[in-house]
Write a protein that binds this DNA or RNA. Structure first.
Length: 543
DNA sequence: TTAGGGTTAG
């Protein structure tokens, strides 16, 4: 089915069977002669030459170099160079101060960014939309979207004029914290909605599984004459693959090509990943071949997606070959490459090899992040190497990368499984103390642990606490609680909770049914058990 | 010379 789709896909005039793991000899794909470091060093020495000229050169000459460094994400360097200018008595213009704010925001030094903003106002510069947009983005990136909206309201009252960039940033900020509804409301108040705004909303709607609404917005933009661009199509292709409507995704791929929009590295990567997720590795490889033929250079994302796909289908050898192929092509592995390999090895129960990679990456100056630690910790716990898992957990204490909700949940889980329930609760307390909030997953682990350890009351308290805090338990949480009640012979309470769960719209899965049916049979309530059995059949859950 | 959107890992 997938093959026939790709044959129809007009990008593939002939399915090029790309020899998967051979390095590609193509001058276009050679790595750059200048390394990032030497470009950075050249920029700094040019800057210093300007700084030491007898007559101060025009400020925008400094700005050009600073802008280049910011594009290279060398924020600390840019900040230090701007400081040097000020020390020499050279006053920066508004553009350079905006750059400075941008750097501070990227480094999450918001108070410093706002002090630069104060300096701008003090110097009598008219704070412009660029300054405000940069600050708004800084706030949004830190998750402080409410504050960003407040800043927006404040500057509007003060008479500042904002533009499309500011609104794009606000809409994006709202969307990325899951406030898509609020994002759409804001979007509807704006005159002159842009392609970028539509792209952000379509993306959020698809990621939240609202394909109809997303399609509606796409049609709306077309009707209004707002042209979908490359990113619109990539977003639609990715999103419709995500919600399982692959035919629609391919429809957009054809539409984009017929509108003369050339697929880029994102498009191909989305397709490679989609095929890999469907375990269609042959198809994924074909996409790689097509992209190479189209002179689009595969990047680290292309190879990472492909490697993950090979691990999913249990072909670790092929994944390793992809790893060598990427190196041959001059594509450097990143932290995700290693995380994918570590995860793949753990899935295949090769924990020692995973630990070796953990050391290898550090020797290559690729530093493990929270995901790396979580993957390894979970693997070590699941294979009974608990003291090693604790060592890694303690290694994270008080430094980067920091333990997150997944790290804590893994350790709480291992404590529960080893019947150390008090220690599990103590760790829950510590995690809260460190500013990490437990989620539904953590709660489910604890409820399950308490029930298995005969501490039903504790389990019920945790479960009730979820409701008190306004959370909606998911099917797993309900199921472990129902199972705990059944285990203690409290069948009536279990059935009351079952009804409550179904009424809330959370529908039973096969595991929930099995637990209830077996408890009813055990309690000689055969009639009720049969009723539940028939209900399970009628819901087609046996499939 | 300064501000906005899309892809891969637990």
């Amino acid at each position: 089915m997938w093959l026939s789709r790709s044959v129809r896909f007009s990008l593939l005039p002939s399915i090029a069977k790309f020899p998967p793991f051979l390095p590609i000899h193509n001058s276009l794909f050679c790595s750059h002669s200048h390394s990032q470091t030497s470009l950075h060093d050249d920029a700094v020495s040019q800057f210093n030459r300007l700084l030491h000229q007898r007559h101060v050169p025009p400020i925008f000459e400094f700005g050009k170099i600073l802008g280049f460094l910011v594009r290279m994400k060398r924020y600390p360097t840019a900040i230090s160079l701007i400081k040097q200018m000020e020390l020499k008595g050279i006053h920066n213009d508004l553009a350079n101060l905006n750059l400075l704010i941008n750097c501070c925001c990227h480094l999450h030094k918001l108070s410093f960014a706002f002090s630069v903003f104060a300096k701008i106002l003090k110097r009598g510069y008219h704070s412009d939309a660029i300054t405000l947009t940069t600050l708004v983005r800084g706030l949004c990136d830190k998750g402080e979207v409410k504050e960003a909206l407040n800043l927006h309201d404040k500057v509007i009252t003060l008479g500042s004029r904002l533009n499309q960039f500011t609104y794009v940033t606000l809409i994006n900020g709202l969307s990325k914290i899951g406030e898509t509804k609020a994002a759409i409301e804001l979007f509807r108040t704006i005159q002159g909605q842009s392609t970028v705004m539509y792209n952000i909303i379509i993306d959020s709607l698809l990621k939240e599984n609202h394909p109809k609404e997303a399609y509606g917005l796409y049609s709306e933009m077309v009707i209004k004459g707002i042209s979908p661009d490359l990113i619109t199509y990539n977003t639609l292709i990715y999103g419709f693959c995500l919600v399982g409507q692959v035919d629609v995704a391919f429809g957009f791929l054809n539409k984009m090509v017929s509108n003369s929009i050339r697929p880029d590295v994102y498009t191909y990567n989305i397709l490679i990943d989609a095929f890999c997720k469907e375990r269609k590795l042959g198809e994924a490889n074909n996409v790689l071949g097509v992209m190479v033929k189209a002179y689009v250079k595969p990047d680290v994302v292309s190879f990472n997606a492909l490697m993950d796909g090979y691990y999913v289908v249990n072909k670790g050898k092929n994944a390793k070959q992809v790893f060598s192929a990427m190196t041959h092509m001059g594509v450097s592995p990143d932290v995700r490459t290693y995380n994918i390999m570590i995860n793949g090895l753990i899935r295949n129960e090769m924990v020692d090899e995973a630990i070796n990679l953990f050391h290898e990456m550090q020797n290559r100056n690729i530093f493990p992040n929270t995901v790396t630690y979580n993957t390894l910790i979970d693997g070590l716990c699941k294979t009974g190497r608990i003291s090693h898992a604790w060592d890694l957990f303690h290694e994270m204490r008080g430094r980067n990368p920091q333990a997150d909700v997944i790290t804590y949940s893994s350790m709480i889980d291992v404590l529960c499984k080893n019947h150390q329930l008090d220690k599990a609760i103590e760790l829950l307390r510590k995690m809260r103390e460190n500013g990490v909030q437990p989620d539904m997953y953590t709660a489910t682990i604890l409820i399950d642990g308490m029930c298995r350890g005969g501490r039903l009351k504790n389990a019920q308290e945790i479960f009730q606490d979820l409701f008190n805090k306004g959370h909606n338990p998911n099917i797993r949480t309900y199921t472990v609680m129902i199972s705990g009640l059944c285990k203690e012979g409290l069948l009536d309470e279990a059935l009351t909770l079952w009804s409550k769960m179904e009424d809330s719209g959370c529908l039973s899965n096969i595991i929930t049914f099995e637990i209830i049916i077996s408890a009813l049979f055990k309690n000689d309530e055969t009639e009720k058990a049969e009723k539940f059995f028939h209900e399970m059949i009628s819901r087609d859950l046996l499939k």
